[in-house]
Computed example of a mutant assay.
Amino acid sequence: MPNLMIVGFRDEVSGKTTISRAFLRYFLENGINATGFKPLSGNNIWRHYDQVCDTLEEGRLYSNDAKLLKKELDGKIDKPIKEELINPVHRLWNEPALIDPLTRIPNFLVDRITFLDDNHLKTILLNNKIASFESLDKEKFLKNLKDNADDIYDIEDIETFNTLVRYYYDKAIYSIYSKIRKDFDLVIIESYGDIALPWNSFFKELDLVIGVEPWNIYVYEPEKYLDAVEITTVSYLKEISTNQIKDLIKPMKKVRYRPARSSERIEKVKKIASDLFKDFDF
């Protein structure tokens, strides 16, 4: 099963989801059973309040990116797919989205983690007990989400937080990814922010890497891209940004694209996909 990964060269608004949707639409219209997959995502209580409230009213929590990717699949695949399968791990950030200097715990409200356990879909929450949330009643705000959760872990120290993140993030991403590998012929993996690799599990399973930024689309050979990530990882303890490796690798191809109105954007990028994938026999 081919894997195509989309990464961005901007922390925000690089165009990853637009490109992912356009490529997904292109493959689906050409008879390929494809899906989008965003292993990790997050949104912010202040900047994305409408989206947050809409999902919490459903007793769920997922990103607008997952919603848009699912929309591309609706009516085009045999079985409906939930946003949580497209996006197994999602964080709701508090504002400001910083790290507490005393506890070292990120200033988030809750992590929603969805995984498969004996073929049953389960959801757990990591509930940040130390996050200050004075302007709203946090328990009331998250009530529907908590009522639908299979388990809730309260986070009060960094050691517990790190242990749960390591275990459940990997369990969620691996179990969901394993399922969609069986159900789909092609997976478009979308990273988050400007992170070079959304999860280590995909190291050896990439067939093409696409980097995007305003005006430009870059195509990279997976082996060389991953080598650049690995070399850079030795020097950095934190997540690797795409801009830390951009100068280390030369793209196989660079495509220019112009801005377009939102109603036309996906179709215009889809035309680029037609030429692009013919060039690479993908």
Rank of each mutant, 00 (worst) to 15 (best):
M5P: 12
G8S: 02
G8P: 12
E12P: 00
S14K: 00
T17S: 04
I19P: 12
R21L: 00
A22M: 01
F23W: 02
L24C: 11
F37P: 01
G42S: 14
N43H: 15
W46A: 15
Y49N: 12
V52Q: 07
C53F: 05
L61G: 10
L61Y: 00
S63Q: 07
K67T: 09
L69R: 00
L69Q: 09
K70S: 05
E72F: 06
I77Y: 11
D78W: 02
K82G: 00
I86F: 04
P88T: 02
H90R: 02
E95F: 15
A97D: 08
I99T: 12
D100H: 09
L102C: 04
T103E: 06
R104M: 12
I105Q: 12
P106F: 02
N107C: 04
V110F: 02
D111K: 05
D118E: 12
H120E: 14
L121Y: 05
L121F: 08
K122Q: 09
I124P: 02
K129Y: 12
K129T: 04
S132E: 03
F133G: 13
F133T: 01
E134F: 00
S135L: 15
D137H: 12
D137A: 08
D137Q: 04
K143I: 00
L145I: 01
D147E: 02
A149T: 01
D150W: 04
D151K: 15
I155W: 06
I155T: 08
D157E: 14
I158R: 03
E159Q: 11
E159Y: 05
N162Q: 13
L164V: 02
V165H: 04
R166H: 06
Y167M: 05
Y168S: 07
Y168I: 01
K171F: 10
K171L: 14
S175W: 09
S175L: 04
Y177W: 11
I180Q: 05
R181N: 01
D183L: 09
L186V: 03
I189P: 15
P198Y: 09
W199M: 05
K204D: 14
E205C: 11
L208P: 11
V209G: 10
G211T: 05
G211E: 07
V212E: 08
P214W: 01
N216R: 12
P222F: 00
E223F: 04
D227G: 04
A228Y: 00
E230S: 11
E230T: 13
E230M: 14
S235L: 14
K238E: 15
E239H: 12
T242V: 01
N243H: 10
N243P: 07
L248V: 04
I249P: 06
K250C: 02
P251R: 11
K253L: 13
R256Y: 03
Y257E: 03
I266V: 09
E267F: 10
K268L: 15
K270L: 11
K270E: 13
F277A: 00
K278V: 08
K278M: 09
D279I: 11
